[in-house]
Design a protein around this nucleic acid. Structure first.
Lengths: 208, 208, 208, 208
DNA sequence: AATGAATGAGAGTTCATTCAT
DNA sequence: AATGAATGAACTCTCATTCAT
């Protein structure tokens, strides 16, 4: 009981610290200070800064995985399904900003930790299945173009959602617009749906 | 002459180092080692790691600013102009990956350096002007919807282009697809154009 | 039964670990890991790293003591008796290398543990008795010089035998000869006998 | 000027510390505390504890090498030459006890540092040359047996001299005799000469 | 008789920076 | 204008040991 709670306490604080400062910028001392335990306990439970970071990453990925798996799109039209998936991703990323910041950090590190994690790799790659089915249905009905696959769609949706969080500060600094301003949220949430549906229902211009 | 070259040498190496490891992960010693001068010279010319990083950032932003300014869209239809701008951004980001990695790093730091740089802020915010004109034309002709402004369009274009570079490693690790694979480039380049034109020419679904 | 075996298991593993890495270099965690029990049990049975080390040392000294006691030299000529004792010591040290390594380690620690052990001190100092009798016989017959006592002889024999084990690695590194190479063993075994007999049967040169 | 002195200061203190506690038992903090500089300087000059230890070892070996090289034996009879060499080794080891303690420590570490040192390996292996010439002369005159080579003789001499220092504490603890007691020194110094000359001038017993 | 969970103190090492010329 | 030598502060991590049952 105590054990589990202490580990979770460490993970919570570590998530915030790594999200706030990146891997290299995060301080084990700082994590310990914000925890109810000591630095020694971090090493007792997680062995090293790298392994702690990996544990943080795995928990964050497990969470978005659960969100993706729980989206119900079976009864929706292909277009509405796509919009629903896009909105769910947008909602997750904007309400769990630490996830995106961890992903940015992990990319700085060339995904070296992620590649070591069988769970993340297996579970998250399979999450693309729902999208594949929706697109197959849309292509079958003639609603969707057939030259853009599920991974491309996932890429566009993620790109839009990620950008709001990952580039929030530089965007705000340069243009004076905070993309995560609650007042903008409804419009941005609608726009991602429009964008993805419009893209899939238009005819490709290139090479035409 | 020699002085200028030494400074540029330092900037080149520092750009690579900061892009490779982020701000906190970058090592002044390592930068010095890869330079033809010594660590002492870095401090002589740039005063601190922070200031060196800012100089690197300013030079990187100056470059993309030049690209955006040089896009010629006056004679193109609004849709083609949009597509051209999107492709130029995509081209820049994918061929200057260090820029995106610096931007990711700067966002981890909550844009603290960028906010200190009058040049970056002034020049880059003005770069939105070209886009504003194109959209105004498209809205006037009735080709474009009028509820999405230039900043939104810039955001969508940037999101798409940035994602390819910023999230390359995690995407590749999870899905086994390298978004920067040259073989994928033509399709991805076309897709960003389709995406942005389709989005601007469709009717908004939300709230309708 | 089980208890005794567990303690012996710990002692066996600890002997190997202390012999391999010295006292300061040995790790209680490592000893525990190579044992069928846990680290907690080491403290349960041996109280501390120091006490465990002392137990290891005592067992090792008890063993060589038994060897020395069992040498049968009563019917041999003084010279042959000396040779037999020298060979027995050589055989023991070269076939129980961990003993010598423990002794080296204990000397690094200025024999601080050994001085705390009444058993080692009492039993091992009495082991010199056999040698005293042999030398007394040799001196009486006029075969041996009378200005070298049993402790000196023990010292020379031990020095030769210990050196093979204690300095094996530096000697091999510098000269490329492994003193414990089985092929060299017969010659080295003969040489220690020659050396000790020749020394005791020669006339002292010094001061003469 | 200052630099050289600081480095030597560190080396002197480190030699004492490593000799006193072995490699694993030595503390960088302790070395720093006994130095006129700080711990940081140790790392500045020597990079790591391992490298500092190697530097200590190299200097210690360089010293004995110089002693061995300076022994003048050309005009002496083979037997006297052998005795002179043996006494020189005995003198060096007993007056530079830290050397022997470092060698013991290095053997605990399986000569891992020494094997990395080209200087030690090259210079010290060549030191056997003087001994080879003396033995060749003695064999030629018929004074020496011909089945014991220079390395064997070096081994016997070293074994005797090393034992006095390396096993001093256990020997003293068990037998109550301090082998390095100045009062014993003349006898011990004579004995090593007797031992090595007697061994080389006697006829081998083995296999006879 | 036996043990899983927890830990205080200190280890070696690294980092951006400044001193002094 | 340019630089080699030096450094304080902080970092990640380890180790023998004890708490609590």
């Amino acid at each position: 009981m105590t054990t589990i709670t202490t580990q979770q306490d460490i993970l919570d604080v570590a998530t915030a610290e790594f999200a706030a400062h990146g891997f290299a910028g995060a301080r084990v001392d700082e994590i310990a200070a914000r925890t109810r335990t000591t630095k020694r306990m971090i090493y007792y439970y997680f062995a090293s800064k790298d392994d702690l970071y990996l544990a943080v990453l795995e928990r964050a990925y497990a969470h978005i995985r659960a969100v993706e798996r729980d989206v119900r799109v079976a009864e929706l039209s292909p277009a509405d399904a796509l919009r629903t998936i896009a909105e769910a991703t947008y909602d997750h990323h904007t309400t769990h900003q630490e996830f995106m910041r961890l992903v940015s950090t992990e990319n700085i590190l060339r995904a070296q930790h992620l590649r070591r994690s069988p769970t993340i790799l297996a579970e998250n790659s399979s999450a693309i299945g729902v999208l594949e089915q929706v697109i197959a249905r849309g292509v079958a009905t003639g609603d969707f173009r057939d030259d853009v696959d599920a991974l491309d769609v996932h890429m566009m949706i993620s790109a839009y959602a990620c950008f709001h969080v990952a580039n929030r500060h530089t965007f705000d600094a340069i243009f004076g617009r905070d993309m995560l301003d609650p007042a903008l949220q409804p419009a941005h949430r609608a726009l991602i749906g429009d964008m993805i549906v419009a893209t899939m229902t238009c005819r490709a211009r290139t090479g035409g």
